[in-house]
Design a protein around this nucleic acid. Structure first.
Lengths: 222, 222
DNA sequence: CCATCAATGTCAGTTACTGCCATCAGTCTA
DNA sequence: TAGACTGATGGCAGTAACTGACATTGATGG
């Protein structure tokens, strides 16, 4: 009908963020987003696999930047330092759009299903970082832990940067978190003594996994 | 119609895990789960807010056990040690149901939307742990980082425990991850030198947040 | 002017949920 | 013991997120 409008994807993204910020994610229909963008609902789902994904288009870029940083780091650097540096590079990638980041973070914080998607993206980032570390020779467990630590630092650094107007640059927030993590683990006074397993009154066996007890015991067939 | 059947919740949970394991999560309808459990689809959604939640009933219990462990830890213990001990208590809570944990983990690993839900549960656990740490006087940043570290160790310990038949007890896996984390951060050789921000060719400003670039620049209004 | 291709529009259909109301058995009470 | 009450369900209609199949349209190359 109407003439051919370019940048449908971008218009959908902007329309979505606006509407989600105004009425909230759940109170906004994919159809409404599409209409504001001047396209059909069907077109919305051609650009994005689901309604949430319209807010996460840049995750792939961020991940790529961080992984590239790791791949190009000097081979002699310790895994934790490689990851720390990579997270600062990632921070530099976002540094320019603080207001946008704020708005987007607010929308996500207001909806659990959006939080889930963000956590999945971060998990994906963690997996990619771990793989990159293994690529440069880090042992399995080391790679996994360093990656998780890096993502945690990034996440916490981001929250600090976003949440505090007087906060320094994003990169600086990450540096602080990194230092904090180092002193945290260094502060361990633990001897070889494992804490009493029944501390909280939980019997050693029985116990349900991440799910309810009714299922645990036997092969949950009954 | 039929006489009153007890434990509808438990039957739904078992039916769901069976069907999800057989045909996969997406290939299984909420209606099918309900029918196998001998109830209506409507009843399924009375017990669980959504189809995924039927697999995560025990998350609350695990969280409670861990938080209680933190609350009852000696006040002198360093945050990282408190968290480490708490995660071992949590591990003890699941220790008895390894086979169940395996099956459940396999189902979850096979579906992204289930992974998302699991990540949300873990994030909730992390938030609760951080809060418990603050309650005992830990500074904001310290609490957040120690909590994240604890959850990471728990997650990695769990994967080790589940994925390797020759792996030791869950608690042992966590201990290993904990030690590994300590030596990891201690291995940092970083000076006060921050890595070059433009390492990966990203200009200091511009840059898109966690989302695509088209939106970043201005207040994304245009 | 016609074949073609990419980006859309149209439509019908499945499925996850939700609100509302009826039913049914067990219980408490006058 | 009839009647009110309550807790757990069944039934049903309706919304909204996706999806597959097919028609349309505008720009392009020959």
């Amino acid at each position: 009908m109407a003439r051919w409008k370019p940048d449908a994807r971008g218009r959908l993204q902007r329309a979505a963020l606006e509407l989600f910020a105004e009425r909230g994610f759940e109170q906004t229909t994919a159809l409404e987003v599409a209409e504001r963008a001047g396209v059909t609902e069907r077109t919305f789902f051609r650009y994005f696999p689901d309604k949430r994904e319209v807010l996460f288009d840049g995750a792939g870029e961020l991940q790529r930047v961080i992984v590239e940083s790791i791949d190009s780091a000097p081979a002699t650097l310790a895994p934790i330092d490689v990851v720390g540096a990579a997270m600062q590079v990632g921070a530099g990638f976002l540094e320019g759009g603080r207001e946008y980041s704020r708005q987007r973070a607010a929308v996500i914080a207001a909806n659990p299903s959006l939080q889930e998607r963000e956590l999945l993206k971060l998990a994906s980032l963690g997996a990619a970082v771990a793989e990159a570390l293994r690529r440069r020779g880090a042992p399995e467990l080391t790679a996994a832990l360093a990656a998780e630590a890096g993502v945690s630092v990034f996440k916490i650094g981001f929250e600090t940067w976003i949440g505090d107007d007087s906060a320094p640059e994003f990169r600086q927030c990450i540096r602080s978190a990194l230092d904090q993590l180092t002193s945290l683990t260094a502060a361990s006074t633990r001897t070889e003594q494992a804490p009493d397993s029944t501390t909280s009154g939980t019997p050693p066996q029985s116990a349900a996994p991440l799910s309810a007890s009714p299922l645990s015991a036997s092969p949950l067939s009954a």
